[in-house]
Design a protein around this nucleic acid. Sequence first.
DNA 1: TTAAACTTTCAGTAATTTCTGAAACTTCAG
DNA 2: CTGAAGTTTCAGAAATTACTGAAAGTTTAA
Lengths: 185, 185
Amino acid sequence: MKMTPLITSAVMHFGEMGSRWGFNRTVGQILALIVLNDEPISAQEIADALNISRGNTSMGLKELQSWRLVKQHLVPGERKDFFIPAGDIWTLANRVFEERRKREIDPTMSLLRDLLLDAPGNDKEASAQHKLNEIHDLLESVTAWSEELQNLGPEKLNTLMKLGSGVGRMLDLKDKLLPGKNSVN
Amino acid sequence: MKMTPLITSAVMHFGEMGSRWGFNRTVGQILALIVLNDEPISAQEIADALNISRGNTSMGLKELQSWRLVKQHLVPGERKDFFIPAGDIWTLANRVFEERRKREIDPTMSLLRDLLLDAPGNDKEASAQHKLNEIHDLLESVTAWSEELQNLGPEKLNTLMKLGSGVGRMLDLKDKLLPGKNSVN
DNA sequence: TTAAACTTTCAGTAATTTCTGAAACTTCAG
DNA sequence: CTGAAGTTTCAGAAATTACTGAAAGTTTAA
């Protein structure tokens, strides 16, 4: 399980970026190692390759499983657990996206909903509430849309993304062809 | 500058979420306070309202300015600086998005480009490189697309988002109407 | 040019987060 | 059963990140 220089660089980078992506250094490193490795890899091999404690490895793997980024792969004859990525690159990116939405947006939406239920105590509060409402609506649109996009599936999503500036033109086109169909939601 | 209960709750929550959104607790609190406050507010008032040191306040404001989320607002007669949001809610959300892309995606794209330049040393490296390439392409699409969407401007973007599941249907429609126009990029 | 009013910086401290490793637990072959 | 091979947990140590407050810096009115 000696890492090649290329893999080492990538693993180290994913470690450094880890905290910006919502997990910590070792979790990022473990993820990179599992993704870049062609073979299923055991917890012990991971600990050795990254020079981290067995306990830390176990926690990192647990977290990656909670993010649904890696999964266990049981090898028939073997006693120990092996790990592999939970899907292709596209799937993994999606999972990170979704999981982050849950952690970064959902709690705020829920708080905002609560705060908007109370009657404002005075003008200041009324104005603040109005702004909180704007934030809530924005987050709601973004959430709904991201779910929509996920439902499109990889192929269509790719078509849409590759469309580039064509999206703008397409919207115009649609307005001409299907007037009054804006309220699809 | 006594905060009302509503504003206090919101400010505290934005503080707690701060770290998940890419900055720290006080920065989140300061942002919320500036956004929810109708009047421009001075650094000293912020420090008092949040019970944080003047130094910390100054650093937080500096960071928020580097994110282009708040800006100075010079009041004619006054000596001190006042602060206000750098735009409406939509603009602010966009800035956070953009700024995070810079911090979370761009460095990785740049590393991946470098790693893909080297010739693979063996089969393992060749395979890893292939995966890194996939990641690179994915990030590139996402980046390009998010720029595209920003160029659409708020109104069109909103139309697109509100379209909901209509997007899928629209893509089908487009294929029928404009066959062979997929390669807009 | 002075000094009052304000801002920024930064060394040291406090708070938080991550990591280790030993102990407890689980599973299974013999 | 028993113990070997493995995993998980968690209290404390280490590392990182955030915060304070005093000192240095800046600006402007007089």
